[in-house]
Amino acid sequence: MKKTTLAIIFSTMALITGCALTTATGQKIDENGLSSIVKGKTTKAELISKLGSPNSRTVMGDGNEMLFWSYSSMKFSMLPFGNKGNISEYSSFSATLNKQGVVQETHFLESNSGGPAAKVGVDIN
């Protein structure tokens, strides 16, 4: 009888609380931290020091280089009452460097399904 009562209590708690799963890739990019990146001055080494290793790197035909950092997360929510649904977050930052390894152009993109509207193609400087 005691085991049955405990099983009912735990089952009821599981139904009420539901469950959630969060998955993330990359390192979160803080837009405020990007404000210290200055076109014509900040170097590749300084970018990597601030942001870590880029997710991808491309050398273009003219010898310039593009570095790309990205972060994404998704929270899957399975709540039986007051379901908030799935929440996703995405941000990316790219920097184009000249042949000397100095920043020439930057772009930041941020999107959050559970918050304010997306900021698309924001040139940070």
Rank of each mutant, 00 (worst) to 15 (best):
T42C: 07
L34H: 01
F76C: 01
S91N: 14
T106S: 12
S73T: 11
H107A: 13
N55H: 06
K84T: 09
M60C: 00
K99V: 08
M74T: 13
F108Q: 03
K44Q: 15
V122F: 10
M66I: 15
K28N: 04
V120T: 11
N98Q: 07
N64Q: 14
N83D: 15
N83A: 09
T25V: 05
G114S: 01
M66E: 15
M1S: 14
I9R: 07
A117K: 07
N125Y: 13
K99D: 12
L97R: 05
G33F: 05
I48K: 06
G85R: 00
V103G: 11
Q104W: 10
K39C: 09
K41C: 03
V38H: 13
V59T: 11
E46I: 09
S35H: 10
E31T: 00
M78E: 12
S92P: 01
M74V: 13
N64L: 05
G121E: 05
G61V: 05
A14R: 01
P80A: 08
K41T: 15
F10C: 09
F93V: 04
G115R: 01
N98T: 05
L79Y: 12
G101Y: 06
S49N: 11
P116I: 08
N86G: 02
I48L: 02
I16Y: 08
L47S: 07
T5C: 04
I37A: 06
S77N: 15
S111L: 03
F76W: 08
T23R: 09
F76D: 03
H107L: 11
N86K: 02
K44G: 03
S111N: 11
A7I: 02
M78K: 12
M74N: 09
K44V: 05
S88D: 01
F108N: 05
S94L: 08
S73R: 06
G52C: 02
I16N: 00
N112E: 05
K84C: 02
K75V: 09
M60K: 14
K2L: 11
Y71P: 07
T23Y: 13
P80E: 08
Y90L: 02
G40P: 09
G115W: 02
V59P: 03
K28T: 07
G33C: 01
A117M: 08
S88M: 01
R57F: 04
S35T: 12
S73Q: 12
S49Y: 04
T42F: 08
I8N: 04
K75R: 12
S111K: 11
T17Q: 04
K39S: 11
I29R: 04
T58N: 09
M60I: 00
T106E: 06
N86L: 00
G121C: 08
S113F: 02
T17K: 02
T42S: 13
E105R: 15
S88G: 12
K3A: 15
K99H: 06
T22E: 05
I29S: 01
P80C: 07
S36M: 10
A45P: 03
L51Q: 06
M66P: 00
N64K: 13
K28H: 06
L6Y: 13
T42I: 05
Q104P: 02
T17S: 07
A45Q: 13
L67I: 11
G18F: 04
E105S: 12
L79S: 10
